[in-house]
Design a protein around this nucleic acid. Sequence first.
DNA 1: CTGAAAGCGCTTACAG
DNA 2: CTGAAAGCGCTTACAG
Lengths: 354, 354
Amino acid sequence: MPSTPRTSAPTIVDVAELAGVSMKTVSRVVNNEPGVRESTREQVLKVVAELKYRPQLSARSLAGARSFLIGVLYYDFSAAFVARVQEGAARRCREVGYHVVVESHRNDATDIAVQVERMVAALRPDGIILTPPFSDNAKVVKVLEETHTPFVLMSPGRMAKGRPVVRMDDVHAAEEVTNLLISLGHERIAFVLGPEDQVVGAQRYKGFAAAMKAHGLPIDPELICPGDFTYPAGVAAAHHLLSGRQPPTAVFASNDDMALGVLATAQRLGLQVPGDLSVAGFDDSAAASLVWPHLTTVRQPVEEMARLAVDMLIGPQRGDAGAGGAAPAHAAPNQALLRVVPHQLVVRDSTTAR
Amino acid sequence: MPSTPRTSAPTIVDVAELAGVSMKTVSRVVNNEPGVRESTREQVLKVVAELKYRPQLSARSLAGARSFLIGVLYYDFSAAFVARVQEGAARRCREVGYHVVVESHRNDATDIAVQVERMVAALRPDGIILTPPFSDNAKVVKVLEETHTPFVLMSPGRMAKGRPVVRMDDVHAAEEVTNLLISLGHERIAFVLGPEDQVVGAQRYKGFAAAMKAHGLPIDPELICPGDFTYPAGVAAAHHLLSGRQPPTAVFASNDDMALGVLATAQRLGLQVPGDLSVAGFDDSAAASLVWPHLTTVRQPVEEMARLAVDMLIGPQRGDAGAGGAAPAHAAPNQALLRVVPHQLVVRDSTTAR
DNA sequence: CTGAAAGCGCTTACAG
DNA sequence: CTGAAAGCGCTTACAG
């Protein structure tokens, strides 16, 4: 029997009255807290479903210790990476009853600390995911630590020590790419560096150098090009490399955008890829499988990294009723400080035997 | 003189006491409401700055009519477009003291209505931005209308009528691309269609057909290929078109991904682009300027569209103090129902004269 | 296993 | 132009 038609959304009081229990018991059920008789729980859940009761975030947040909000801080530059981070974070958050708030800032903004402090104070997020280059931004990390806001650094460099981190093994991945090229018979292998302020670039070079050394191959300084992770840097590197007296037979660019620049330039100069020149990148960007030939590269499991980051921030199973988790709330977050996720070498058509 | 050191964040009461006014006056100042003596306002703002007082979103949301949250609903597919939407929305929101919550869903999820209903009930966002293909999802629109949640449709098709919409003029833009090709001397121009359930595809075809007709050029049915906005569809179209008895001299693909497929396939088959075949796309995706030759295409001002959508949702100038706006709150949102933003024909290297 | 009371930090609706 | 009171819808800290 429908009672008087409601105009506003049902509250916890409505559920409590209809179920014949107290507000507090409804709260226990909705939050999956223990200590509720099974029959009571069922009765409450029935009324919840009947009324389509949805706890209001702002009220929970104001009264309690959680906001059910996870912030993702990103720089507008690397759209593809950030989109994948958000995808992974948003999906995981939905599974556990959380929501993702995104904030775009320029990494070099002078007022970045104030901006972040403002956001954190207004939103009180339960955690923040820092994507590169923010994961190495000392100002931002400082604000978060001062305000006691939990955070996870994605693929950081120097800021990693002692802080919660999710990353892949860039060194090892770069070794694998280099080993692939060496196994294909290449010896004069060029490397295009990343920007100096981004540690992943250095790590990838480290892996490259280690593999070369392990195989007794010399590193010709002429074949090591500066770069900044942009397409034009790849173009410049290719011009430099291919105009030299002893051009390389393979180029390993430390990210896909630069590899794409190398690829386009080599083709423009009349070289066949991979016949005359093998090219490898790093990231498995969308464009990597759109260009011809498809680019050999390394795929990071970005979505998985984001999911892990969310889990590190909210702790185990802190979800809503019906969202899967039935475990003690308030479990300690950040249990493991470092999570390294497996990468994948993606061998496509831009690399071949000498 | 620092008083007793605080451990928790300052509240509106702290500001009121220190400023010697009531809570309500602080509230007025913070919300840029009229009716506060200038000297009082200044005094309050001084204390706000001193204490670094930041109103807490959850409390404002619970007590008041606004949540300061804008939701962006997106499908995981078109990452680049969505990233640009979020970029524009996030920047605009930050300017006016709002925040962006992102929710990723599959457009074909059977429980999409429940998912959206849940999110809206929990978050109480002040508005939702629907990106394609959600902007044409009747279930989602229905839920939002039933829950009286304001929304804006980005580039919708059949759902547009009578609802708040931001879009570009796809018909006209496609005409311009076609006119460009015709002006370059092309007459046998192929067109690669979009998926049947996405209206923008149909609109682009409409523009193509109109331009052809205006110039008295026939449309050969053999040169109109099916497509679904994916790279492989472009590959398939190219194989079909280039193996025919009278291949086209130009191909206009209704999005960049397909144009990229056409481009790569033509090159693979030994054709020079643009020498033997001109290729044009639509979107100005990142890859469009990464491939060689760079793709002639159409750029939509996606960030600008997102900013407009935010403004339509929050109404004019509803920002916080210090965030720029000093105007009446509660102005009617959605004043203009339809905003059409200017596009830009981007002529690059993939098109040339016959 | 369950509940009554207090309170989170704001805005609303009023009164002056 | 300013303020005192009530209340938004939950959780916390207790008590039983």
